[in-house]
Amino acid sequence: MYSEKVIDHFTNPRNVGEIENPDGIGEVGNAKCGDIMRITLDVEDNIIKDIKFKTFGCGAAVATSSMVTEMVKGKTLEEALTISNAAVAEALGGLPPLKMHCSNLAADAVHAAIKDYLNKKAKV
């Protein structure tokens, strides 16, 4: 049911963990529906310099989280904001239909972390 890429990212997830004192934090999902993703990132000169994720969820949730961190690392904030959930799923070689809406939130988590960073910056 899962593509090889999904299994690869589930088995060897990239950028797992949490950045200490991150520039931005994004959390989406809730325990009720079975998926929670937390993204922490560091920004330097408008570029995502480092990014890490922690995810509670199914195989698709873990794989999309891992994939999105690879996709946005080193990108400008503007570039990162154009990456959609659908693009993450596509990069993984697709997800089973049922997973498209419930476990495909990783890009949302990144966008939330960027917005958090921008909000904090605006307040300074």
């Binding site: 299994i7 998926d35 195989g59 949730a61 997973k99």
Partner: peptide
């Protein structure tokens, strides 16, 4: 989460099931 557990078990050849929504 249950499905993650099932996938991980399946990878090492153990078949189980879960009450997870997934």
């Amino acid at each position: 989460e249950g499905e993650s557990l099932l996938l991980s078990l399946d990878m090492i050849g153990i078949a189980a099931s879960s009450g997870s929504a997934c």
